[in-house]
Amino acid sequence: MKTVEVIVEHAGNNLSAYIEGAPVITVGNDVKEIEKNMKEAVELYLESCKEMNIAPVEILQGEFTLKFKIDAATFINYYSSIFTKAALSRITGINERQLWHYAAGVHKPRKQQLEKIQKGINALTEELAAINLL
């Protein structure tokens, strides 16, 4: 089964998402809503193709799963109510000022910086998942 990437971006007061190469786009207030709306949008598109007796775009033919991807600026801004730039700096090892630049779109992080952010998020996820409250 192939994986189809859904790109999630910051869109003012909400989020938007699209599949490159497919006429499917959606918006939502949070990531869960984006996931739900995108699945519905893809289903509607595929149903429309079937009703009109046309083939869907190649990327949405056959069996696939959706993989949601978010860029660094969107991640930093979307989760800013949970992670301060200082906290994100501590878990990633990236200078707080640099994180501000990423969030504002002044700079795009290099691949190495994206990997540091991803590694920090993954480490925090594992640590939190291991906690059992009394």
Rank of each mutant, 00 (worst) to 15 (best):
M1Y: 09
V4Q: 06
V4S: 07
V4D: 03
V6M: 04
I7E: 06
V8T: 01
E9Q: 09
A11F: 14
G12Q: 12
N13Q: 14
L15H: 06
L15F: 05
L15S: 05
S16E: 09
A17C: 00
Y18L: 07
Y18F: 13
I19H: 01
I19W: 01
G21V: 05
V27P: 00
D30H: 14
V31F: 15
K32M: 05
E33S: 10
E33H: 02
I34Y: 03
E35W: 01
M38N: 03
A41R: 05
Y45V: 04
L46I: 12
E47T: 13
E47L: 09
C49I: 10
C49K: 11
C49N: 11
K50N: 11
M52V: 03
I54D: 07
P56V: 07
V57P: 06
E58G: 09
I59S: 08
L60I: 07
Q61A: 06
F64T: 09
F64V: 07
T65Y: 00
K69D: 10
I70L: 13
D71I: 03
T74K: 05
T74Q: 01
F75V: 04
I76A: 12
I76S: 09
S80M: 08
S81H: 13
S81M: 10
T84Y: 05
A86I: 04
L88E: 04
S89C: 02
R90C: 00
R90P: 00
I91C: 12
I91Y: 12
I91V: 15
T92V: 11
T92R: 15
G93K: 13
I94A: 08
N95Q: 02
N95I: 00
Q98D: 01
H101A: 09
Y102G: 03
Y102N: 05
G105V: 01
V106D: 09
K108P: 00
K108G: 00
P109R: 07
Q112T: 13
Q112P: 00
E115M: 12
K116P: 05
I117F: 11
I117S: 13
Q118F: 03
G120T: 12
G120K: 12
N122C: 00
T125R: 15
T125N: 11
E127Q: 15
E127S: 14
A129C: 05
A129N: 15
A130V: 08
I131W: 13
I131Y: 14
